[in-house]
């Protein structure tokens, strides 16, 4: 057996399959980026629930909810979550949105569980004196959290969030389970129509690799820029 690159190229360029690949790449990025943003919001809220010092019963319940949420989403496979959201949750709730939007929500919910732990660490890494100074000026707990602690927490966890984004990009390759055409599915379609599986999948791996390398580079760059502005 040998790899027929010519056949692959004819399909990719000649039959304009690259358009489907680019569209798939866009879908992959939309789902990963949208998932990251939703996850950031959910994760921050869950982390705050866990950290609120109040002993009021409401906050204890919220902290428990947050723990259960994290346990459930970390304790089940992503594909299963995706399938349940597509075939159970959304139909039961009577919501009908595009499969891409569904996938974005699914990845947002899932990464919320991971980002919760990341944000918790980030918030705890902000010096306690910062929030004490805010409180001493008369700002209340949430004002201090929003204007003083969270901005510093997010900054502290940007490298870790970058890793989460990379993980998300790779994980989104399962969205074809609910018939979303992402970059993986686009290459799969090419493979199926040309029977040139080897070339298609090698190229697919390369596309992911390049994507991840580029994003890693961007994160490193951002990190370095931030460190320069931090120098005393």
């Amino acid at each position: 057996m040998s790899i027929n690159w010519g056949l692959f190229w004819d399909q990719f360029y000649g039959a304009e399959a690259y358009k489907a690949v680019l569209a798939g790449l866009r879908t992959t990025l939309i789902i990963a980026l949208g998932g990251l943003l939703i996850g950031l919001v959910i994760g921050s809220i869950l982390a705050i629930f866990k950290l609120v010092p109040s002993k009021k019963i409401v906050f204890r319940v919220l902290a428990a909810v947050s723990n259960v949420y994290v346990a459930v989403f970390r304790g089940t496979p992503m594909v299963v979550q995706l399938l349940i959201i597509h075939y159970v949750l959304f139909p039961l709730a009577g919501i009908s949105i595009s499969s891409v939007a569904e996938a974005t929500v699914a990845f947002g919910l899932n990464s919320g569980a991971y980002i919760c732990e990341i944000m918790r660490g980030g918030i705890l890494s902000v010096d306690k004196g910062q929030s004490e100074a805010g409180r001493a000026l008369g700002l209340n707990y949430s004002q201090t959290l929003i204007s003083v602690v969270l901005p510093q927490a997010v900054k502290n966890v940007i490298p870790t969030l970058g890793n989460e984004f990379i993980a998300l990009i790779k994980e989104t390759s399962v969205v074809s389970f609910i018939a979303v055409v992402d970059v993986t599915r686009a290459f799969q379609n090419m493979a199926n129509s040309t029977f040139e599986y080897m070339a298609s999948y090698i190229m697919l791996a390369l596309v992911y690799l390049v994507l991840v390398l580029v994003i890693t580079f961007i994160i490193r760059f951002a990190e370095r820029r931030m460190r320069v502005s931090d120098q005393r």
Partner: peptide, 27 residues
């Protein structure tokens, strides 16, 4: 009550995510 009472800390605790002016006008 705290609005009437300023506090200065041993380790300063200026807000690191804000400029001097933002620190002053924030509260």
């Amino acid at each position: 009550a705290r609005r009437k009472m300023g506090m200065v800390f041993q380790n300063v605790n200026l807000f690191n995510n804000m400029t001097v002016m933002q620190n002053l006008v924030c509260a």
